[in-house]
Computed example of a mutant assay.
Amino acid sequence: MPRKGAVMLHGVLIEWQGKGIVLTAASGTGKTTHARLWREHENALIINGDRVLLRKEKEQWYAYGTPWSGSSGECVNRKVALNAIVFLHRGLINAVEQISPLQALGEMLPRTIAPKWHKEYSELAVDYAVKCLEDTTLISLQCLPNAESVSVLKQKLMTVL
């Protein structure tokens, strides 16, 4: 994939109102739960529940569903323009903020899936991940597993996208 200009990310890809949104977090944080809340309350399509392919074509980053859906079982063969990456965290309240690429870097790299046995491809994957951060709206969401978390994120997305 890195040889073809793409990088794989551990995350959930949803499409909401024609916008591609990746939810990423450490395993067990609640990515699938949050995506399903988006489906239930905002009619979002869950394109992939575990592994998202990101690739820039011309001036636009796109996110792709892959056959690897993890335990969610959610996977659709679909491509959508990438509009935002949301870094999900469990919280005591629902709170959201836009963050910089530098703030997101420490969370993005551990979730970037790269062939560690191949130095050139690993470096390419990291380079693509960094470029994607530079070109994409980045959001940090502290949340509870409830409908209000969807509402809080939706309000923020509507102001930045």
Rank of each mutant, 00 (worst) to 15 (best):
A25N: 10
A26Q: 13
A26P: 09
S27R: 11
K31V: 01
T33P: 02
H34Y: 12
A35I: 13
L37P: 01
R39V: 12
E40P: 05
E40D: 11
N43A: 15
I46K: 02
I46P: 05
I46A: 04
I47D: 02
N48M: 05
G49T: 03
D50W: 09
R51L: 13
L53S: 09
R55M: 10
R55I: 08
K56P: 03
K58C: 12
E59F: 13
E59T: 13
W61K: 01
W61S: 08
Y62I: 09
P67C: 11
P67E: 10
W68G: 03
W68C: 07
S69Y: 01
E74I: 10
V76S: 09
V80S: 07
V80D: 07
V80K: 09
A81C: 13
A81E: 15
L82V: 02
A84I: 13
A84S: 15
V86N: 01
F87P: 09
L88P: 04
L88W: 03
H89Y: 06
I93C: 06
I93A: 13
N94M: 05
V96W: 00
Q98F: 10
Q98G: 13
S100D: 04
P101Y: 04
Q103S: 12
P110V: 06
R111T: 07
R111W: 11
I113H: 00
A114K: 09
K116Q: 11
W117C: 07
W117G: 07
E120W: 05
S122Q: 12
E123L: 14
L124W: 14
A125Y: 00
V126K: 01
Y128V: 02
V130M: 00
K131S: 04
C132T: 02
E134L: 03
T136N: 05
L138C: 04
I139A: 11
I139D: 08
S140I: 03
L144W: 01
L144D: 02
N146V: 05
N146F: 03
A147L: 01
S149C: 08
V150I: 09
V152W: 00
L153R: 00
Q155L: 15
Q155R: 15
